[in-house]
């Protein structure tokens, strides 16, 4: 890191940033650029790959290698890059529509494979770029241009989806909380394998205030559950609320919890079984009340990239793939010669 001597400004490009003034994407860009020097990786070894959407313009503003691809396909493209170039630090930037509608299939498969990718999912619960249709994370009953009488479909909770795919790292953070955002980025970057970071992002044009409950000074402490590995899951202005385990084993929110209440759950981000993290992800209601923020799950599994490389090495160690080997391969078992 010291030899690289990179500064946040080294990660800025000469391209004019074209999000709407006030868009949450600016804060995320600043936080990522601010974090990048800490990654300790030279700019040429970092690649940002995105799909399509407001959020997916991100790579144009990062002075690294980058690709703004097609709608929903960034995880697939990044999978090919990461598995063929395990030396690179590969990041995916995607939106709630990009990742969970058109690209839902690629997302879950990248997660289950555990490809070494850091996926930043900007969730503004709306289609921004196409001007405000509801998205797969919009709350039921959402009134938008395409749903004038309210949307009918049950939304995805991106964290639950990721944990359902047994993602080895899942975190959640908020665009406006630079410190927390940076801490989750750091944890994701440290993770070996696919890391999914859901970033609640305000679209002030089409879905303004979607996360205000988690942002306003008078409500945020009551609705935000900060997760720290090894710490009790207590929250609320005076710390009197907590995630507790009910007699039937389910997780629940309790008010006025005594300091020594044995029901209070201690966060275990390293639990091998994803059910615990999944139960945490189910605590939040549709409008982000009781949102656990931080790292839900972080477990070490072998990465797809490393395992593929190992298979290649193993095969080459048995018999190198040189020109003589190719000649023998072409000849096959039964060649014949005519003089």
């Amino acid at each position: 890191m010291t030899e690289l001597n990179l500064k946040p400004k080294d990660f800025k490009t000469d391209q004019e940033v074209r999000w709407c003034p006030g868009c949450g994407d600016y804060a995320i860009l600043a936080a990522v650029q601010g974090f990048m020097p800490e990654l300790g990786v030279a700019r040429e070894n970092i690649v940002f790959i995105s799909g399509i959407g407001c959020s997916s313009r991100f790579p144009y503003y990062m002075n690294t290698y980058g690709m703004h691809s097609i709608h929903g396909r960034a995880p697939a493209i990044a999978t090919g890059l990461s598995t063929s170039r395990p030396d690179l630090s590969v990041w995916v930037v995607t939106g709630d529509g990009d990742a969970l509608s058109i690209g839902g299939n690629h997302l879950i498969h990248a997660l289950r494979r555990n490809v070494n990718l850091k996926i930043l999912l900007f969730n503004n619960r709306i289609y921004g770029l196409t001007k405000g249709q509801y998205s797969p994370t919009s709350e039921i009953g959402k009134i938008t241009k395409s749903t004038p009488m309210g949307s009918l479909d049950n939304p995805f909770n991106p964290v639950s989806v990721a944990l359902g795919a047994e993602a080895t790292f899942v975190g959640r953070t908020l665009d406006s909380d630079r410190k927390h955002l940076t801490s989750v980025l750091r944890a994701a970057a440290d993770h070996n394998g696919t890391a999914l970071v859901e970033i609640y992002q305000n679209c002030n044009i089409f879905n303004d205030g979607a996360f205000d409950l988690l942002k306003e000074a008078d409500t945020r402490d009551d609705w935000t559950i900060r997760m720290e590995h090894g710490q009790p899951l207590r929250f609320g202005t005076d710390g009197s609320k907590a995630v507790v385990r009910e007699p039937n084993g389910a997780l629940a929110i309790a008010d006025d919890v005594a300091a020594d209440d044995p029901r209070v759950v201690v966060h275990d981000a390293h639990a091998e079984d994803p059910s615990f993290a999944f139960a945490l992800s189910r605590l939040s209601s549709l409008d982000s009340r009781y949102s656990p923020m931080g790292v839900f799950r972080s477990v070490e599994h072998p990465t797809y990239d490393a395992m593929m490389t190992a298979q290649l090495d193993q095969a080459a160690a048995k018999a190198p793939g040189d020109d003589a080997a190719l000649g023998a391969l072409l000849a096959g078992a039964d060649p014949w010669t005519i003089d």
């Binding site: 290698y65 493209i77 090919g80 890059l81």
Partner: peptide
């Protein structure tokens, strides 16, 4: 998609 990603990486 994966092939195109690999191509970007020089494969």
């Amino acid at each position: 998609g994966a092939a195109l990603g690999a191509s970007f990486g020089g494969a």
